[in-house]
């Protein structure tokens, strides 16, 4: 129950942010303009298009990341040992996103090139992308304690046997 109250709060906050953004007049080129030479592609203007939106943007992304982590949290059943690992991984995800925002604020042109991209983009590609691997490793490694324990399996087998004895009553 408490977890879903948190989810509700997060959703309301996210809606609030979206509507706050939508109520403000959109600055020029905030979502790109046609490229002046090549009209089949767009251009993004300069970084000043995001002036005044960086804090809202960070909050929009950060609340989403918290929402995803809470969703994983509520799905974990059975033995709940070491659930703090989910919080740590979620914290790392949030930290990488925050570093992306900070490095973007410092400028894409000035940023060092690392692994083929300017730093803020590197953080997106080589920081945020691998977080999916981290959560997947958690799923694989903790499967038997968080997702489907031997106790769950036994309970499922018993339930199946009980349902089979009343076959027909429960068919979809």
């Amino acid at each position: 129950m408490k977890s879903y109250s948190v989810i509700f709060f997060l959703l309301i906050a996210l809606m609030g942010i979206v509507f706050t953004i939508l109520l403000q007049p959109a600055p020029d080129s905030i979502s790109g303009n046609l490229h002046p030479i090549f009209p089949s592609m767009s251009q993004g203007g300069d970084a000043s298009r995001h002036d005044g939106f960086l804090a809202l943007g960070w909050l929009f992304g950060a609340l989403q990341i918290i929402l995803f982590v809470v969703c994983i949290w509520v799905s974990i059943c059975g033995e709940k040992t070491h659930r703090w690992v989910v919080i740590v991984c979620g914290g790392a995800y949030l930290l990488i996103f925050t570093m992306l925002m900070i490095s973007y604020r410092q400028g894409v042109i000035e940023a060092p090139f690392i692994l083929g991209f300017p730093l803020p983009t590197t953080l997106l590609v080589f920081g945020m992308w691998p977080m999916a691997v981290v959560f997947s490793i958690l799923y694989v490694v903790k499967f038997r304690s968080w997702v489907y324990s031997s106790h769950d399996q036994e309970a499922f087998e018993n339930l199946k046997a009980e349902m089979n004895s009343k076959e027909g009553d429960y068919d979809a």
Binding site: I21, H35, G44, A47, F53, V108, P120
Partner: peptide
């Protein structure tokens, strides 16, 4: 050609 295109938001922008 355009720094924002190579930044993390591309031309679509942050939001």
């Amino acid at each position: 050609d355009n720094a924002e295109s190579a930044g993390p938001w591309g031309t679509l922008g942050m939001i």
